[in-house]
Design a binder for these strands. Structure first.
Length: 507
RNA sequence: GGGACGUUAGCUCAGUUGGCAGAGCAGCGGACUUUUAAUCCGCGGGUCGGGGGUUCGAGGCCCUCACGUCCCA
């Protein structure tokens, strides 16, 4: 029997002993007044005398995370995931049965405690408990109380243990929730309507990405998990909803890295009658506002550096960035031939689709992208890599588009939306050709979307903002896995799940 | 896909040149009515990620597989 098996067996035995005394170890409910962190927040400023005077009796539920046993007096910590409340448990303050139950409790057990709120000699706010109700028995030992759970693989695979033992982890997900609700308030206040559009789509459009394929049995058709909600949201512009947004998951069948998870959360919004310039202003306002509200500052600390969100943010066109930040000669970004020569000279990989736009983008990525520490708007992307964007009036090789870079990461992508159905058809054709030329990220053609445009879509600006990456920046998390509760990991092979004993205990 | 690093008790980690596998916490037994990483006395706990090889002898060296982390593509 391993050490773990011994501990589990001990806990099971204690559970059975408690149950044998006629007590339910898994009761259905517990009538409670306040949770530990709320008690702490509400009463921690009261003095010993004030607490004595109030003589507050409270019923408080939580998980036991520490014992300090001292003979006929037991101190324990009751935790609710946010904060702990000390329990002050004296033998002669409770019934014999309650004292017996207390001695049978283990670290990790979920209990409800009733007693009077007081302060100890050392001044700690404590609940002097006289009644204890077991609410759930923990059959497995908790991670170490001081170091917490550090093993990153376990933290992702068993996030509940991470949340239980690392308060910082809880804080990350609270910040994430505040970002999302902050975005909702911001957009709702400006008259945007939140909607939900299909995640299973017959045509995976709206972004250059490989989709996941699934199958609908009753209809007998393959469906794609959406790579973006874009084409549906713009159908809503056609339908007469002038300000619309969606916050939800996108799925891209691509590699996993510190910045990429196959499913990720995106805000996408569309605003009729404006162009990408107003979107840049709105983006600055949204993100600095979120930082002020949530972090109380517009200076982020990111990878050991300070990142100031002070407005206005820098703007570089892709061509300009390649020249000014990438150190490329101005003449070299003006033609396909010169770009190709430059890529060869720098021994860089040449993209499969050798169009002007793809070549410029490749050179930009190789020379200048890493220099965009941010906040920087990278603007005016080539037309042939931006099939849904409107061209610049003065130079049709480029579009009215921007990407926001923050901390070296691409956070947002936006453009003045292409609303000419015939131009859109032409762009889709070019994407088909690119696909045939081997670019399997090229957009699929969506005829119904073009038909929608034929009914007239108002000019509009549209933008997507990556919620996961924004959360990384706000919480100083270097990996996207730290801001996704259950990131995708390869399943453990048979026999390495650590649960073999459960199979044995079935007989 | 390539490279570097990691995987030792439930958890956090040591383990020197290849020579008896360790500590703290947690667990078990005992003492203790104001502790808070409680303290004190005692005890138990290992598929050193899996497999193969070299060697008198492998946690440590070699090969291989798995999982993870980071970097590169």
């Amino acid at each position: 029997m391993s050490e773990l098996d011994v501990q589990i067996a001990n806990r099971r035995q204690k559970r059975d002993e408690i149950a044998a005394a006629g007590v339910s170890v898994y009761p259905h409910r517990f009538e409670f007044d306040l949770e530990p962190s709320v008690v702490k927040a509400k009463y921690d400023d009261l003095s010993i005398e004030e607490l004595e005077e109030k003589a507050l009796r409270l019923r408080v539920p939580g998980r036991i995370t520490a014992f300090r046993k001292q003979g006929k007096l037991v101190f324990a910590d009751l935790h609710d995931g946010k904060d702990r409340l000390q329990l002050f448990l004296r033998k002669n303050a409770m019934s014999e049965q309650t004292w017996e139950l207390l001695l049978q409790l283990d670290l990790g057990d979920v209990v409800g405690v009733e007693g009077q709120l007081m302060r100890t000699r050392m001044g700690e706010l404590s609940l002097a408990g006289d009644r204890i109700t077991i609410l759930a028995k923990a059959l497995r030992p908790l991670p170490e109380k001081w170091s917490g759970l550090k093993d990153v693989e376990l933290r992702y695979r068993q996030r509940y243990l991470d949340l239980m033992s690392n308060t910082d982890s809880r804080r990350v997900f609270e910040t994430r929730a505040r970002i999302i609700s902050g975005i909702r308030s911001f957009l709702d206040a400006r008259g945007f309507l939140e909607v939900e559009t299909p995640m299973m789509q017959a045509i995976a459009g709206g972004a250059a990405a490989r989709p996941f394929v699934t199958h609908h049995n009753a209809l007998g058709i393959d469906l794609y998990l959406r790579v973006a909600p874009e084409l549906y949201l713009k159908r809503l512009l056609v339908g007469g909803i002038p300000r619309v947004y969606e916050i939800n998951r996108n799925f891209r069948n691509e590699g996993i890295s510190v910045q990429h998870n196959p499913e990720f959360t995106m805000l996408e919004f569309y605003w009729a009658y404006v162009d990408y310039r107003q979107l840049m202003d709105l983006t600055e306002e949204l993100i600095t506002g979120l930082a002020e509200d949530i972090l109380g500052t517009t200076t982020l600390s990111w990878k050991g550096e300070e990142l100031s969100l002070e407005r206005p943010w820098k703007r570089y066109s892709m061509k300009q960035a390649t020249v000014e930040l990438g150190g490329v000669e101005p003449a070299a970004v003006e033609s396909e031939e010169r770009l190709l020569a430059e890529l060869h000279a720098r021994k860089l990989e040449v993209p499969k689709a050798r169009t002007y736009g793809h070549l410029l983008a490749a050179l930009f990525e190789a020379t200048a992208e890493d220099e965009l520490r941010g906040p920087v708007f990278l603007t005016d992307h080539p037309t042939d890599i931006s099939p849904l964007s409107k061209q610049k009036p003065d130079d049709p090789r480029f579009t009215e588009r921007f990407e926001l870079y923050l901390g070296g990461m691409e956070i947002a992508n936006a453009f003045s939306e292409l609303n000419d159905p015939d131009v859109q058809t032409q762009r889709f054709r070019e994407q088909m050709l690119a696909r045939e030329a081997g670019d399997d990220e090229a957009h699929q053609v969506d005829h119904d979307y073009v038909r929608a445009l034929e009914f007239g879509m108002p000019p509009a600006g549209g933008e997507g903002i990556g919620i996961d990456r924004l959360t990384m920046l706000f919480t100083g998390s270097p990996s996207i896995r730290d801001v996704i509760l259950f990131p995708l990991l390869r399943p453990l092979p048979e026999g390495q799940t650590g649960d073999e004993w459960m199979v044995e205990s079935e007989d």
